[in-house]
Design a protein around this nucleic acid. Structure first.
Lengths: 150, 150
DNA sequence: TTAAATTAAATGTATATACATTAAATTCAA
DNA sequence: TTGAATTTAATGTATATACATTTAATTTAA
């Protein structure tokens, strides 16, 4: 029984909208805690994993820092510093963009690709484990979240 | 049209569970960004607001730091340091617990209560604005989030 | 064509998260 | 009753978020 009322020991909410905000914040914390534990052995954070996924999605094409920023889950995050962290770990390369010297092209390295591959299966299983819903319910959740943001 | 595929420019997901994880992370960022802007003029963060709400929910009864921690939306957060921040702002008082000198009783001040009151109406309106769902849908969302965490 | 405006990335600073460790007080058990 | 174990809060450190500022390169418009 995972009711939010029990989880945070709050018996009533002002209205279902207020409850939904609290429920989303709490569920996020639940997810990130689980994800962090999953990535910890690889010495990588959930956000760093996400940046690597974005880069792999480019199929080897270089991606600028601002393009990474646009695709990040958290728009207020800082792609520049995350790329720097991944570079010191040897997961990405940074190159000056030939057509615009303001921009910086970022490419995932072989080491980065192999890290993603080694995590792929685990992440798939873990996602299913974290989310205790059947197929219809998870599709319904995706529909509601998309609609929620308008 | 707020589909997650457009928001983060990713055309397909491994499966609906993976999509739901991404959708939850992205929706959280959307909410926190909106909330931060709401609390900014009061010089308070969403987490600090949440701690004040917990303390007010005690109806003036002192609450220990560990009890606050248990009720926080993010279980990995650090109640001790958030209480310290709120104390420097005059929003809470900290007292040694008479029955157990390891514990610290925390009480919300009049200033803290007035801050919450001044925000109450705004928060109610903002929550409804952030969440573009009708009553049935928001109840369904709450049901799914509770079930998700199992 | 050059000065102003814009864009891209990096950097600075405050706050918060994640997790380990420490210090003090209390409880438990030999 | 005293030493070991546990509990509570604080603190240390690395990472990330939130937002402002800076620097350099490019675009634009006078």
């Amino acid at each position: 029984m995972g009711k939010i009322e029990d989880a945070i020991q709050q018996r009533e909410f002002k209205d279902p909208y207020n409850k939904a905000v609290v429920n989303l914040l709490y569920t996020h914390s639940y997810l990130v805690t689980a994800q962090s534990a999953l990535f910890k052995p690889c010495d990588i954070s959930p956000e760093q994993y996400n940046v690597l996924r974005i880069l792999r999605g480019q199929n080897g094409q270089p991606t600028t820092v601002s393009s990474i920023q646009d695709r990040m889950l958290n728009k207020m995050s800082n792609a520049s510093r995350l790329v720097e962290k991944l570079k010191t770990k040897g997961m990405v390369r940074r190159e000056e963009c030939p057509t615009d010297r303001r921009q910086v092209d970022v490419v995932i390295t072989e080491k980065g690709i192999q890290l993603l591959q080694s995590l792929e299966r685990q992440v798939e299983i873990a996602n299913r484990e974290f989310i205790n819903l059947d197929k219809d319910e998870v599709n319904q959740l995706n529909f509601l979240l998309d609609k929620l943001r308008g």
